[in-house]
Simulated assay, not measured.
Amino acid sequence: MRLLAVPAILFAALVLAGCTSSSGPESLVSGLPSKETTSSVAQGPVPTADVGAIIAQAENHPEQLAWAGQVPQPQAFESMTDEGMAVPAERPVALVVPDDPAGNTVRTRRAQIYSRQFRDAHPINFGKASPRKLAVHGVDISRWQGDIDWEKLRTQGANFAYIKATDGGDHLDPMFRKNWKRAKDAGLKRGAYHFFYWCRTAGEQADWFIRNVPRDPDALPPVIDVEYNGESSCKYRLSRAKAVEKMQVFMDKLERHYGKRPVIYTAPDFYRDNLTGEFKNHPFWLRSVAAHPSQVYPGRKWLFWQYSGSGLSHGVEGRIDLNVFHGSEDDWHDWVARN
């Protein structure tokens, strides 16, 4: 028992020495930094907000898919027959204010831009105005492209995709939900488009789109597809004034809901009959597969150009529509950030 007292006294002395020392046993190992240094993470300013309140707020506002959500009720000033809707000459873009304005100072990493690797079953020589000279290409798809390998499609040059969501007031593209999720998972910027049906009211169609397309802040602005469709059961041709009025009702409702001004997709014949000189404050997406848009839509500024309906790409069976953004890579990143 007395022999054990000596080690005990020595151990106690070491413990007392450790209490007054600024370094532990690891600091005695020559040439190795302490674990306290190598495992530390530099911390920024500590927020003053109540963390519990932030968590509660996040739980009360999760990102939700609106596949089966409640259809919004038409606004009191909107007629379900679209009659009497005033068409303003100019409207401010709706702004989405984040719950934490300081979040605007956080810079996100720009997505990689892949160069165009697409082929074309019926290539067109656009000459000096070739879409190949523009940097950011993309696609638009629907159920007819089947099951898409989105990762492979992206590396072929699909930096963005517009995905068909709805048409009319009661049809949902059966591949929309899958394509919407998988395109984002693959890193593409994606948006949804609606094929406008002239025999249904604009308010009904807007409600149907809103019910089925999630309000995702990372999504591209929604698109209204307006064109003549010879295969449609709706053979009704509206007057120019009526067509513009219905489009305005639909787009106003989407802009209020998503906080983003809709893009107008159209084709040459419909544009000529209804849209020349109209909607000067809206971005346009123009179909022009035989000539540059400046020749087909003189004087019209455009954001997207659909230059082929016969594209071929790894990751997709069959043909696919090819599009290009009007601007440089920096222009693209700036536009995405603003929208």
Rank of each mutant, 00 (worst) to 15 (best):
V6N: 11
P7Q: 07
F11L: 13
A13E: 04
L16C: 15
A17F: 14
A17G: 11
G18P: 03
G24T: 14
L28S: 14
S30P: 08
L32P: 06
S34E: 07
S34N: 09
S39P: 10
V41G: 00
V41P: 04
V46K: 13
D50N: 11
I54Q: 13
I54H: 10
A58T: 04
N60G: 03
P62S: 02
E63H: 12
Q64T: 14
A66C: 08
A66N: 09
Q70K: 10
Q70M: 11
P72S: 07
Q75T: 06
D82T: 06
D82M: 05
V93D: 15
T105G: 07
I113R: 06
Y114E: 06
S115I: 07
N125S: 14
K128G: 04
P131A: 06
V136A: 09
G138R: 02
G146S: 08
G157F: 00
A161W: 02
G169R: 07
H171S: 07
P174H: 12
N179G: 09
W180E: 02
W180R: 02
R182H: 14
A183K: 09
K184R: 15
A186R: 15
F195K: 01
R200C: 06
G203D: 10
Q205K: 09
R211L: 02
R211F: 01
D218H: 13
L220W: 12
V223T: 05
N229K: 01
N229E: 00
E231T: 12
S232V: 07
S233I: 07
R237W: 04
A241T: 09
A243D: 08
M247H: 02
M251Q: 09
M251A: 14
L254E: 06
P262V: 06
I264L: 08
T266C: 12
T266K: 06
R272V: 07
N274A: 09
L275P: 01
T276W: 01
T276A: 07
E278A: 13
N281P: 01
L286H: 04
R287F: 00
S294P: 00
W305A: 05
Q306M: 06
Y307I: 09
G309A: 14
G309W: 02
G309E: 14
G311C: 10
G311R: 03
E317T: 08
E317G: 12
L322W: 01
F325T: 08
G327R: 14
S328Y: 15
W332T: 08
H333W: 12
W335T: 15
